[in-house]
Each structure stands twice: as C-alpha cells, then as structure tokens.
Simulated scan of single mutants.
Amino acid sequence: MANFVLNAAAREVAQQGKGSSRRLRHAAKVPAIIYGGEAAPVAVTLELRELVKALESNAFFEEVVEINIDGKTESVKIQALQRHPAKNTPMHADFKRA
C-alpha cells in the first residue's frame, strides 16, 4: 500500500500540446504522463494542490505512488519533475510504472 495517493483524469489527444498544457496550468492543474511496463503511455492531469502537498515530503521521491485515473489505479514512481523557474511550482511530471 502506497502512502501517497493522487487523483488524476486522463487526457485525450486533443487536450495535449503546448496550448492545452498552458490552459491546464492556468486552471491550477498539472499535466503529467505515465509510461513504462507493458501498457501504453497515458497522459493525465493532476490537481496542483494535491501534487504540491505530496511534494512536501521527501519520501514522495523514493516510494511507490498510487494514481487513481478515472477509477483505475496505477502504481508508479516519479521519474522527472519540471518546475517553473521563478515560482518553483510544478509544471509537468513524468511517472514510471513500478
């Protein structure tokens, strides 16, 4: 059982790209991707508040995280995190299936 559980929504192909990601960030959401394993990569959207709360703990970077994507649970580890250069808020996250 993971200590960290994040809720996410899957993004369609039409909601991917620079403009869509900017609109998501403006709405206090963070674009992310889950890849690895046998399954295909999945583009998701995370709530900024939930991600910032989880990032406060150093254990978040070491432990397995569960992400609920529209009712389906994925066990992942954070692979990369992009932050805004001035504000230090998360801009994009990469998760790898565990």
Rank of each mutant, 00 (worst) to 15 (best):
T89A: 06
A40D: 12
M91Y: 05
R23G: 11
V5G: 00
A9E: 10
S20Q: 13
E50G: 01
H84G: 02
A32D: 02
K72Y: 10
V5F: 02
L48I: 08
N7L: 02
P90A: 02
A59F: 15
A54F: 02
H92D: 06
R49C: 08
E63H: 12
A43F: 08
V42R: 13
P85C: 10
Q16T: 13
A27C: 01
A98H: 10
S75W: 07
K29N: 04
L6T: 05
V13C: 01
E50H: 06
Q16R: 15
K18Q: 06
N68K: 15
K96T: 08
V13R: 08
A86G: 05
L46P: 04
E62M: 09
F60S: 01
N3Y: 11
G37R: 09
A9H: 05
K72R: 13
A8V: 01
Q16H: 06
Q79A: 07
M91F: 07
K72L: 12
A32Y: 08
N7A: 01
Q79T: 02
K87D: 11
A40W: 02
Y35D: 08
V65Q: 02
T73M: 10
K72C: 03
L48G: 03
H26C: 02
L51F: 03
S21E: 07
E50C: 05
A27Q: 11
G17L: 06
V64A: 03
I33N: 05
V64F: 00
A93D: 01
T89D: 06
L51W: 03
A86T: 14
T45C: 10
P85S: 07
K53L: 06
A59T: 15
Y35G: 09
Q16I: 14
R23V: 14
A93K: 07
R23N: 13
A80S: 15
V52C: 04
N3Q: 14
R97K: 10
Q82D: 08
K53T: 12
N3A: 09
F61H: 11
